[in-house]
Simulated assay, not measured.
Amino acid sequence: MLYNLCAIITAISAAVSLGFALAAYWQSRASDDTSGINARYALSRSGALAIGALGLLLFHSPEYLAALAIVMTFVQLFDSAIGRRVSKFKTYGPLATGLVNAIVLALYLMQ
């Protein structure tokens, strides 16, 4: 049960990250300046993490879950730090997601 919960939270986190990367890409797709290039890099990385997160739902692997949940926890915590300059929503949303992911992972690993 905790494996599935942690895998779902991790997948949702990766999907949200992918959504923001897609939005940045669409806003800058006509641009070849630094913002457009950075958006493409963010999209490629977020896409890879989202594909990896789908694997958590298909393959049961505690090691795989721990690795990707830790990665997505840090992604969300870094996003929260970046979001401080943007809005409360972009600060507290990723912070809450990262903390919940870390807590559920810890509970799963302690069982």
Rank of each mutant, 00 (worst) to 15 (best):
L109C: 10
R85M: 03
P62G: 15
A81L: 12
L105P: 01
S31C: 02
T97F: 15
R85D: 04
L95D: 01
A30M: 09
M110D: 14
S13A: 13
N38A: 13
N4G: 13
I37M: 04
G52Y: 02
N38K: 07
I82A: 13
G83H: 09
S35H: 02
T73K: 02
V104S: 04
T97H: 10
H60N: 09
L5M: 12
L105D: 03
S80F: 01
Q76L: 08
A23M: 14
A15T: 14
L18A: 06
H60A: 09
A30E: 07
F59I: 15
A106M: 11
T34I: 11
V75W: 02
G93K: 00
S28Y: 11
S35Y: 04
H60P: 04
A53L: 05
Q111R: 07
L95I: 01
A11G: 11
V75A: 03
F89W: 04
P62M: 12
V75L: 03
A21S: 09
Q76D: 14
F20M: 10
G19E: 04
A102R: 08
K88W: 14
L68G: 03
I82F: 12
G55S: 12
L2M: 11
L57C: 10
A21G: 03
L107C: 09
S17Y: 06
T97G: 10
C6R: 02
L68T: 09
S61E: 05
A30G: 09
R40F: 00
L43I: 02
S13Q: 10
G55Q: 02
L5F: 12
L105E: 07
H60Y: 15
R45F: 15
L77N: 00
A81Y: 13
A96W: 06
M110P: 04
A11Y: 07
Q76E: 13
F78P: 00
Y25F: 13
G83T: 02
S13W: 01
K90V: 01
N4V: 10
E63D: 12
M1E: 08
N4R: 14
R29Y: 07
R29C: 11
A67F: 14
T34Q: 08
K90I: 02
W26F: 15
V86W: 06
L68Q: 01
A14Q: 00
N4D: 10
L18W: 10
A30D: 10
A15V: 02
W26L: 15
C6K: 02
G36H: 00
Y108L: 08
S46R: 05
G52N: 03
L58M: 08
P62C: 05
S35G: 01
S61D: 12
L109E: 12
E63A: 13
S35P: 00
A53H: 05
L18E: 09
L58A: 13
S17E: 13
Y25N: 03
T10Y: 14
S17I: 00
R45T: 11
Q111C: 04
S31I: 00
Q76G: 01
N4C: 05
A30F: 08
K90T: 14
I9L: 14
H60G: 05
I70G: 00
A48W: 08
N4L: 06
L18N: 05
F20I: 00
W26K: 12
L2Q: 08
R84V: 13
S61Q: 13
A53P: 05
